[in-house]
């Protein structure tokens, strides 16, 4: 009878000094790699921050005359620059998430990630490292953009800044997880670009980032009703709404008829946890690393 191979091979693990990696430590290393790579590719900074900032400046100037948001009894209007600022912040988070996950497509097949995939680590550790790295980068870039808020009538307190940073981090984790789940399934970067155009950009566009959620009335068209519905169920709507409230706790927020802040936090947290779980499940459940 044939002997089973496992019975005959002595385990020489000790003499070889085989060790087990701590998954958390491995995640931190992988996140650090993301940050290090980013710092060494200057063009990525320009890509993720440049375009949203240019949009903000151009749209603010262009829409300034046409956009009026009456701010209740105090009679003060909000400029488009103010309205669009939180939306631009979220766009920067989205762009950073896209840039840091698009590299997965090639990295996994013919790059550094190949060696991560054959390392004795749970898959979530790799997913967390990649996503946390991308999210930290997004928060840093969002923070840089936040400096421009000094040109707006926004009052910053330490507590407010902490809340903004926390909301940015949650949203970045969620968006990077979403990018991860999409990129992991992709065969080519072209495919990712297509998804970005037809899914990720509309996701942002219909979040109240660029125009407010329309209020419904008796003469609303079906299209407006549809749009309203989509914006209500889009989790990003609540992140943008939360950002609006954190930045402008006065009249602008009340004029927009935004959902309560607690609800904004809750939806953002749930969506982030859900997205991260989907990313982990995507990376674990598939054996698509093959040709």
């Amino acid at each position: 009878m044939m002997q089973r191979p496992e019975d005959t091979i002595p385990d020489r693990g000790e003499s070889h000094g085989w060790t087990t990696a701590c998954p958390w430590r491995a995640s931190i290393t992988l996140a650090w790699r993301e940050i290090l790579r980013f710092l060494r590719q200057g063009s990525r900074v320009v890509g993720a921050i440049g375009q949203p900032v240019i949009f903000w400046i151009f749209f603010s100037a262009g829409f300034d005359r046409n956009f009026r948001l009456e701010a209740g009894s105090e009679g003060q209007g909000a400029s488009f620059a103010e309205y669009y600022f939180p939306g631009t912040l979220v766009l920067i988070l989205l762009f950073t998430a896209i840039f840091s996950t698009i590299s997965l497509i090639e990295d996994r097949r013919e790059g550094f990630l190949q060696s991560v995939l054959v390392a004795p680590l749970p898959r979530w550790s790799m997913v967390l490292g990649k996503i946390a790295g991308g999210a930290v980068l997004a928060v840093i870039q969002g923070g840089l953009f936040l400096l421009l808020a000094l040109t707006l009538p926004v009052e910053f307190t330490f507590w407010k800044l902490m809340q903004i940073a926390a909301l940015m981090l949650l949203a970045s984790l969620g968006l990077t997880s979403l990018g991860f789940a999409i990129a992991w399934r992709m065969e080519s970067t072209q495919g990712f670009h297509a998804i970005m155009t037809v899914f990720l950009m509309p996701l942002w566009l219909l979040s109240g980032a660029f125009f407010p959620v329309p209020s419904l009335s008796a003469d609303s068209t079906w299209l407006q009703i549809g749009l309203y519905g989509i914006m209500q169920v889009n989790p990003l709507t609540y992140t943008v709404a939360g950002m609006h409230q954190l930045l402008y706790d006065g009249p602008l927020s009340s004029a927009l008829d935004l959902p309560p802040m607690v609800f904004c936090w809750l939806v953002t947290i749930v969506a982030t946890v859900l997205m991260f779980s989907i990313a982990c499940w995507t990376a674990t459940g598939s054996s698509r690393a093959g040709p």
Binding site: T20, R33, L36, R40, G111, Q114, A119
Partner: peptide, 18 residues
């Protein structure tokens, strides 16, 4: 198995920026 084997891929697995 992963703990005991070393793998060298055909396409480079080095991070070129590092």
């Amino acid at each position: 198995v992963r703990r005991r084997i070393g793998v060298v891929f055909q396409s480079p697995s080095l991070d070129r920026k590092l």
